[in-house]
């Protein structure tokens, strides 16, 4: 396409995703027909709870609100933001799991979605069979899997158990095997939602290294969502902060993390001590921040002040 230059692999234009608040329909045909018939005759909906707020077209929630983003080949982009900022929705739209309400996304090549480790693994199948099944679910052909199976098995560190049904695996082995498959995908764009935090510390390090190598050596593009600032620092070379469905910062990783943590700290002075420590205890820090954010009600006005530095 002419507007997309050769180096640009993902182009997101004015992307919005709207969700309706309240229950979606009543879930049964009879009630929906009743409501529809009542509305048609101009009567009151018989299924509406007395006193319940009626949701009209205006009562919607924008999980993504006019997101614009261009990603170049070989970039490793971290996406951070509080719960409900729209990170996962953005990934879901990119992975074609759900369609946007407005806007447009174009991408070049294949997208591998790793929104969860071990999607589609089947307990009754052996490790080897699951590698084939999972590989195919993620978009590989049988030959591609066959050509990589040795290195997948080696990476997973499960050689001994590879012909045993995965229901007998420990949870650690399970995620290692699952990640090994994902790490060997051929897709030009890899999209991950907090999946690097699998296995023990050593295996996590190995995963991050593998991902970084893929990006630098094979020019893969990586989009990674995490609440773990350390992995973001380790993996990414560009970072985006999302808030209320909008991109509020796009640029250097350290600056992005400062904004994300800083904005949260400004609102919640009770947790000042955490702010001083966050360089060393990023993990715990993140947990605390999320927890506090959860309790905060009027955070949106406050946090908007602190943004706009990007």
């Amino acid at each position: 396409m002419r507007e997309m230059n050769e180096n640009c692999v993902i182009k997101i234009e004015n992307l919005s995703k709207e969700y309706r608040l309240g229950a979606i329909g009543s879930g049964t045909l009879r009630h929906d027909l009743q409501s529809w018939y009542a509305k048609k005759r101009g009567k009151e909906d018989p299924n509406q709870r007395i006193g319940a707020k009626q949701y009209t077209k205006g009562d919607t929630f924008l999980a993504l609100d006019g997101v614009n983003l261009e990603v170049n080949r070989g970039e490793r982009i971290g996406i951070i933001g509080t719960n409900g900022a729209g990170k996962s929705t953005l990934l879901k739209v990119l992975c074609r799991i759900t369609a946007p309400t407005d806007g447009r996304v174009r991408f070049r090549g294949r997208i591998a979605s790793m929104l969860e480790v071990g999607t589609g693994f089947h307990a009754e199948l052996t490790g080897r069979e699951n590698i084939y099944l999972n590989g195919a679910i993620l978009g590989m052909t049988k030959e591609e899997v066959t050509s990589k199976i040795d290195s997948i098995i080696e990476f997973s560190e499960c050689e001994k158990f590879i012909d045993t049904p995965v229901k007998r695996y420990s949870s650690g082995m399970f995620v290692k095997l699952a990640f090994a498959v994902a790490a060997h995908l051929d897709a030009e764009i890899m999209i991950m939602d907090e999946v690097l935090a699998v296995g023990d510390m050593r295996f996590q390090k190995k995963c991050i290294k593998k991902m970084r190598d893929l990006a630098t050596e094979e020019d893969r593009t990586i989009l990674y969502v995490s609440h773990n600032m350390n992995t973001i620092r380790d993996l990414c070379d560009r970072c985006i902060v999302l808030d209320h469905g909008k991109i509020v910062f796009d640029g250097d990783v350290e600056d992005a993390i400062k904004i994300y943590l800083g904005s949260a700290n400004e609102n919640f002075r009770a947790l000042e001590y955490v702010g001083n420590e966050h360089k060393h205890h990023a993990d715990r820090n993140d947990l605390c921040l999320q927890f506090v954010r959860y309790n905060g009600k009027e955070d949106s006005n406050l946090s908007k002040k602190s943004y706009h530095c990007g």
Binding site: V93, L94, R104
Partner: peptide, 25 residues
């Protein structure tokens, strides 16, 4: 390198069935 461009838009045309994709899988 796969350079095919995929376009994600809110609505799909009625007969845009992408049956070829099933063959790829």
């Amino acid at each position: 390198k796969n350079n095919e461009i995929t376009d994600i838009t809110p609505k799909r045309r009625l007969f845009e069935l992408n049956l070829g994709d099933v063959w790829k899988y």
